[in-house]
Design a protein around this nucleic acid. Structure first.
Lengths: 208, 208, 208, 208
DNA sequence: TATGAATGAGCTTTCATTCAT
DNA sequence: AATGAATGAAAGCTCATTCAT
C-alpha cells in the first residue's frame, strides 16, 4: 500500500487534467467570456460545483491553461541560452513548436492566438506580461540574426518579429477555421519548411 | 415641406453614423460580448433606448460595422477584375488598404482582426462567409502570381495567402496592442514597403 | 407642463421609497444575509432587476436604510448642541425617538438593533463608525450629567450608557419579539416615563 | 475489553467538545448563517466531513451550543425554587451568571445575545420557546419582588424584566464589541455591583 | 473514525431588449 | 425621436450535505 497516497494524488491530477482539457475545448469553441462553467463541467462529465473544487474561478482555470502554453514555450527558448544554435534553427524550432502543439492540442494553440495574441478583452496585466516577454525573446533572435548578417537590417527586428509570428499564427488559425487537422508528420514538415522558406527567402520565384 | 424628409433622412444618417462610430470604439475596447449597449450609447452621447431605434439588436449593429469593412475591401478587389494590374500592385494595394484603414479607423481594423479573423466565438455563418470570400479572392491573386511565374510554386497558393495576410494582420494588431498610431504618411509607406519586401524577397540578407 | 420634471423625479423617489420599505420589511424578517433580493422585489411588487436600477447592490440598499435611521438620530442630537436642554430632557428625547420610530417604522428600529447594535457579521467599518459616534454622543450626555451632579459618578459614564441604551433596546426588541405594536400615544408615554424613571431612580420601592 | 467503549465514548465526548468550541467561536465571529462548516472544521482542526459524524446538521450543532447555555441558566434558576433566596440575591445571581459565562466562554454569551435574544432570523419555534421560558422565569422574580414590596409596582413586572435584562445584555455585548475581556475577578465584581445598583437605585445622584 | 470528492440548489448581479411616455 | 423604467433570462460562485473510500 505504499502507492495509496501517490494514487490519491494521481487521482487529483487526473481530474484536474480532465477539467483542463474540457475547459480548453470550451474556451476555444466559445471564447473565454462566452464559455460557461456549466459547459466546461458538462464537457468534463462532472457537476459544475466540482470545477470550483479544483480551481478557484473561471479566470484561474483560464490561467492554468495559459500556463501550460507559456511553460512549454519558455522551456524551449531557455534551452537556446545554453546551447549553440543558429538563428535559423531557432526560428524553425518556433514554427515546429506551434505546429506540434497544434497537432497535440489544437485548442490550446487557438486559445493562445484568439484570446491572448489578438485580444484585448481578456488581457490582465499578468497575461500581457507573458506575451511581451515572448515578443521580446523573439525579437532578440531577429536582432542576433541581423548582427550576424543572416537577416536584412533595413527592417526593424521588431517588425521582422511581427511578420514572422503573424505568418505562423495565421497559418494555424486558418487551419482551425477550416477545421483542418494536421494529418501527417510529413504535412507538418512541409508546412514548417514552406513557412520558414518564405520568411527567409521570400515568395518570389527568382529566389527559388 | 419638400426638404423635411430629406433633412430627416440626413439626420437619421448622422445619428446612425454617430452610433456606429461609438460602437466601433466600444467593440474594439471590450470585444463584442463584453461591450454593453449602455457603453455604446454613452459613447454616442444618447440614451440606450435610442440605439434600438436605429438598429435591431447588438448583433445587427455589429454587422453594420463589419459591412463597412467588407464593402471597402471588396470594392477595392472588384476594381482589379476590370483593370490590368500586376500581382505585386494588388498585394501592395492590400497592404495599403489595411494600413490606410488603420490610420482612418483603427478600431475598425482591430475589430476585423480580433473578432472576425482570429475568433470563432462571434462567427455567424454569414460572417464566416464574407471571410472565406476574402480568403479565396486573395488566394486567386496568389494563384495568378504562380501561373505568371511571379510567385514560387512549391508552396500552395492558399499557404502563401495565410503567410501574407498573417504578416499584415500581425503588424497592424501589434500596433494596436502597443498603441502605436501611424504617425506619418512616410512611416506608413516604409512599413508597407518593408512588409511587401519581406514577403516577396524574404528576410535573408542578400549576401547570405 | 412645468410640473413634468418634478413629477418624474417624484416618481423615482416614490419607487425608491417603495423598495426601501419593502427591503426594511424583509431585512427585519430574515436578517441582512438571509434576505434575498427576490424577496424584496416581491414585497415591493416589482421585478428583481428593477431593484438594481435604483440601488447598486444589496449592501447599498441596506446602507440606504441605515442612513435614514442615523440621519434622524443625529439630527435630533445635533439640535442639543445649540439648545439649552437638561440631561434628563435629552435622555427622554432618546427614549422617545426609539419609541416613535418604532411606532412609525418598527422594522427600521429592529434592524438597527439586530443588525447593527447587536451584530458583528454585517458591520462594515463605515457602519461601526456610525455606531461608535452614537455611543460617544450618548456617553457625552452621561458625562455632562455626572459633572452636573445629576448622575452618580461611581459608575463610568460609558457604563451608564450601556445600561441606558440596553434598557431601551431590550424594550423595543421585546415588543418586536412579542409582536406588540405600540397601540396608543398613552402607552408610549407610559413606557417612556417608566423606563426613564427606572434608569434615574431605580426599581426599588423606597425611591418610589 | 471493558475500557474500550468507555475510552471510545470519552474520545467521542472530547471530539464533540472540540467541535462545539470551534463552532462557538465561528458562530460568534460570523453569525449562524455566515458561518461555514468548513470554518468550524478548520477551527476544530478536523475535516469538514467529520462534523457530520458528530452532528446531524449545522442547525443541530447550533442547538447543541444553545443547549449548553440554557442548561446552565435553568439549573441556576431551578435551585431558587427549592431555596430561600431574596429577590436581590436572584437578580445578582443572574448578573453574575452572565458575567461569569462571559469570562469563561465569551462566545457563548455573544451568540445568545446576537443570535437569539436580538434576532429573528434564526428563531425556530423551539428556540423561541426556551427564550420565552427564560423571560417568564425572570418576570416571576420581578413579580415576587413587587408583592414583597422590594420593587416598585407602578411599572409592569415584564417591563422591569426588559429593562433589567437589556442592561445586562448591552453591557456584555458592548464588552464583546469593544473586545474587552473581563480582566479580573474584582472588575467583574465592580461591574456586577454597579449594574445592580443602577437597576435597584437608579442612576440619579443621592443628592439630586 | 476520518477524509475530502462530488453534487446541485440557491443567491447576487448583469444586461439585452421591450415599451410606456 | 428620444428617454429610461421595467423585465427576466443567464451566469459565476458558495456551501450544506452526502457518500465512497
Amino acid at each position: 500500500m505504499p502507492l495509496t497516497p501517490s494514487v490519491a494524488s494521481d487521482s487529483r491530477k487526473d481530474k484536474e487534467t480532465v477539467i483542463l482539457d474540457a475547459a480548453c475545448k470550451v474556451f476555444r469553441e466559445k471564447g473565454f467570456h462566452q464559455a460557461r462553467i456549466t459547459d466546461i463541467a458538462q464537457a468534463a462529465g462532472i457537476s459544475y460545483g466540482l470545477v470550483y473544487h479544483y480551481f478557484q474561478s473561471k479566470a484561474d482555470l483560464f490561467d492554468a491553461i495559459l500556463k501550460e502554453w507559456w511553460t512549454g514555450l519558455f522551456e524551449l527558448m531557455e534551452k537556446w541560452d545554453n546551447e549553440a544554435t543558429t538563428v535559423e534553427d531557432q526560428l524553425a524550432a518556433l514554427v515546429t513548436y506551434f505546429l506540434e502543439q497544434y497537432q497535440r492540442k489544437p485548442d490550446l494553440v487557438h486559445i493562445f492566438i484568439t484570446e491572448i495574441s489578438r485580444s484585448a478583452a481578456n488581457l490582465t496585466p499578468a497575461r500581457v506580461n507573458w506575451f511581451k516577454m515572448f515578443l521580446s525573446r523573439t525579437e532578440k533572435i531577429m536582432a542576433v540574426g541581423q548582427s550576424g548578417k543572416i537577416l536584412r537590417t533595413d527592417i526593424k527586428a521588431r517588425y521582422l518579429t511581427y511578420i514572422f509570428l503573424g505568418a505562423i499564427e495565421s497559418f494555424v488559425s486558418a487551419m482551425v477555421l477550416e477545421n483542418q487537422p494536421l494529418r501527417s508528420k510529413a504535412q507538418k514538415q512541409r508546412i514548417a519548411v514552406g513557412l520558414l522558406q518564405v520568411f527567409m527567402n521570400g515568395a518570389r520565384t527568382i529566389n527559388a
